[in-house]
Design a protein around this nucleic acid. Structure first.
Lengths: 179, 179
DNA sequence: CCTCATTATCTGCCTAGGCAGTTACCGCCT
DNA sequence: AGGCGGTAACTGCCTAGGCAGATAATGAGG
């Protein structure tokens, strides 16, 4: 029997790990995003560039999978980067469904420009932690990611009839010209 | 001189704490969201309900601040919940700008229904951790949140001329009819 | 060779959220 | 009393992202 860290009867929002993780993520995301804005980039654009540079991705699908991002959205981000001349798309000859991405010199220069911004924000956020605590945090988060990835996708428990999740059942008062 | 955990020259995307936190957040968010979908609710709706129940918020602004969420978006979420009869809005008599939120009996029943879902997902995610590791993680995240909240907002460093962040400078070519 | 399931990419469509107002109200100050 | 900065709630507008579908290509199997 694994540990039961939370129980319905005693659950309080302020103690929830979900709450903490969300807060951390939101604040860091906002800070990076606005630091990038001064340079004319978004976080997602940076992700694409650095993933290609670090060899974590050669195609849009690689990024979509590794970063859990929508592939449709990816297409549009890559559109922007291509238009701005930061990377190139090249149809693979081995598999003509695939489009390989490659950084241009301008793309590399952009990474050099943004790297200090990212690193600066990261160091600022982690400032109060010792090297040991930092490693602890990293280790815990890595284990958590690995565990979460290994979990089976959450089978919808109730209302199994409807296949579609329907995010907002009440939909809209706007009345979509029904009559 | 505080610890410098990252350096531009050796920065690799896969080792970044930002990456880890994002992955954790994304996966947990998606899981909770789709678990809720089967019950006809979204995470944000749940947040509002549980915040009101736990006394963390009496008004939309309380939630917006505590959860770092857009107040405009909040208005619309509360609209939905009110329409579905889960909570009520009541104009404060002490300060007529304020609208106080209160759960209805149906709202309380909904929380009872969703609590096991939240707790279940949380415990599932944290399953591989001992009580001690869990407390360690919570402590680290709490310190990180407190530190991040205390940080001054990131003054835009370059291109200081333009006041507006401009998320996407290239804007749009519209014409995506590639030949 | 032909069929069929699968995959990569791209495209519409819709919704949630960020942002910039607008309105109403509060409390302070003169 | 009246002006005025600040605040709560709400409202449009716009964009990013989720989702479903379209297209094209691959590869396995008959």
């Amino acid at each position: 029997m694994p540990e039961q860290h939370y129980r319905p009867a005693s659950y309080r929002a302020r103690d929830s790990m979900g709450y903490l993780l969300r807060r951390v993520h939101t604040i860091m995301h906002d800070r990076i995003e606005s630091a990038f804005a001064g340079h004319g980039f978004t976080l997602m654009q940076w992700i694409v560039l650095i993933y290609v540079r670090d060899g974590l991705a050669r195609t849009a699908t690689d990024i979509a999978r590794a970063f859990r991002h929508d592939s449709g959205a990816l297409t549009r981000v890559i559109d922007q980067l291509e238009r701005r001349g930061l990377l190139t798309r090249e149809r693979s000859r081995a598999d003509r469904r695939v489009v390989n991405l490659a950084l241009t010199p301008k793309g590399h220069r952009t990474i050099e420009e943004l790297l200090p911004v990212v690193v600066g924000q990261m160091n600022l956020a982690l400032e109060p932690f010792t090297r040991e605590e930092f490693e602890q945090m990293r280790s815990l988060m890595e284990r958590l990611v690995r565990h979460l990835q290994a979990l089976p996708s959450p089978v919808v428990q109730k209302v199994a009839a409807s296949r579609k999740p329907r995010p907002t059942p009440v939909a809209r008062t706007t009345r979509r010209t029904r009559s």
